[in-house]
Design a protein around this nucleic acid. Sequence first.
RNA 1: UGGGGAUUGGUCUAAUGGUAGGACAGCUGACUCUGGAUCAGCUGGUAGGGGUUCGAAUCCUCUAUCCCCAGCCA
Length: 556
Amino acid sequence: MSEAPAPTNFIIEAVEEDLKNGRFNTVTTRFPPEPNGYLHIGHAKAISIDFGIAQKFGGKTNLRYDDTNPVKEDIEFVDAIKEDIHWLGFDWGDREYYASDYFDQLYQWAVQLIQQGDAYIDDLSPEEIRSYRGTLTEPGKNSPFRDRSIEENLDLFHRMSSGEFPDGTRVLRAKIDMSSGNINMRDPVMYRILHATHHRTGDKWCIYPMYDFAHGQSDSLEGVTYSLCDLAYEAHRPLYDWFIEKLGIFHPRQIEFSRLNMTYTILSKRFLKTLVEKGYVNGWDDPRMPTITGMRRRGYTPEAVLNFIEKAGVAKNESIADISLLEFCVRDHLNKIAPRVMGVINPLKLVIDNYPDDLCEELEAVNNPEDETAGSRKIPFSKNLFIEKDDFMEEPTRKYFRLSPGQEVRLRYGYYVKCTGFVKDQNGEILEVHCTYDPLTRGGFSPDGRKVKGTIHWVSEAKALDAEVRIYDRLFNRPDPDNFEEGKTFLDNLNADSLKIIQKCKVEPSLISTKPGDHFQFERLGYFCTDLDSSPDHLVFNQTVGLRDTWAKMNQ
RNA sequence: UGGGGAUUGGUCUAAUGGUAGGACAGCUGACUCUGGAUCAGCUGGUAGGGGUUCGAAUCCUCUAUCCCCAGCCA
């Protein structure tokens, strides 16, 4: 295995530069989720970068919930977020913080800015504020309340915070520049009145800081050196810096990178929420969802997800990663770790006419050819077996080298069998296939050295376990699902066949003891994992991803 | 027509004035008790025009295209 080049990117280079010239001498980052939804693979990229940069430079990463909007946030998501970060393999130690921990300090800093003449209370209505703001091409104009005295501003701010005014009647604004080309600098709102109960501070506050007035200062308070975020915040950086400078506090560096996008996938929180709430999927952890919890249930491994993120790279180009790269990473990891088992998804009965009626042999099967330490197991073999429907063709096409009349194939780890006939019902449906076996080929080798081109999987009819198998396909039927025609929505791009549930699949008996989350390769089919719904009475497997299938490709 | 970003094969990403390279995808072939894996090979790229230079993806300049910003969301 060749040594991969040490991954580098523009953020790592910036950090190295800062460390070299003394701008900082330690590295601290933070992952700042808003507790208003489940984490998805886009967050996994942010997590990987935040924790990865710190690890690389021997620094630390804080987990900080950005909980400045009680109307949208909920405690429900806090624990789920922690579980997902841990699953990815990262840990923040005891540094679990909340922006709401800093509300008192933030209030003090707001007072400071008022005293410095850098902030004022505005009585304009939300609509008026919008119209005074100007447009992208026209400058805004000053609010008539912009030049109130410091005393009046202080008094009003105090009364705002003590609940004297209803929601929406006043805000605290930074006094910057209403004619700035950067709209974020046109006297941005710092505090709004929200008579809402906060999941942590309860009813203590009825004014809450805006993101811009909370995020940078929270970073500063925590000694965060690198505030890594997505490109959307690039236009906010001047404001981030402005507050820090005016307050005269520790100055972290914000660096922006492009967010992750993926083909056939939608990552907008709003859209994901619609999928869940309108029942297009079965919850946030539906294996078709790009959520971390969904991918976990699907059987993706953290190693695979992280490797995908690393391979996709970190840059400032807006890009769309090919979902096949993710699938490659999943197969690549599962190939190394997943025990092989035999399972038949669409069973077809195979009768070995010359095999003793009541004999049941135990044949040895390798657990993982990629991993010698995985050992082997015994699987029962008998006269009546199940094979895959696809593995028999009455009239074989060119280059089909599975079972067909007169053809000989190997039953994996079993015997060579030669097809002698088959039985059809009135509708022409094949009910069972008959064959004879060569007793000398036990284990799958022929003493005379003759070759068979095909090897197929099978399970013993008598010993097989029934299982439910859920096969997933892409949730959307086009690579750019948020591209839809007028009058339509992303929902019109949903793939109607993204879930197939198949009952009465047949799997080898060793699977009786499987537990949810176990990974397997069903030989010749794909990687599967045991679903949360699975029990010994009713086995349920999710197809994580199919094996590469060059045969299917040839037949396209 | 304001401000801020970005443009390298189908996709993602390197090359930091000196041979445009890697990964995924695709295509060949070898090997194989998984039509898997593995191995070998192939196809295909610097948005466009000028300029500087012995030499430009890289520097300058003009143009084009795309993205973000007008929440009391984050």
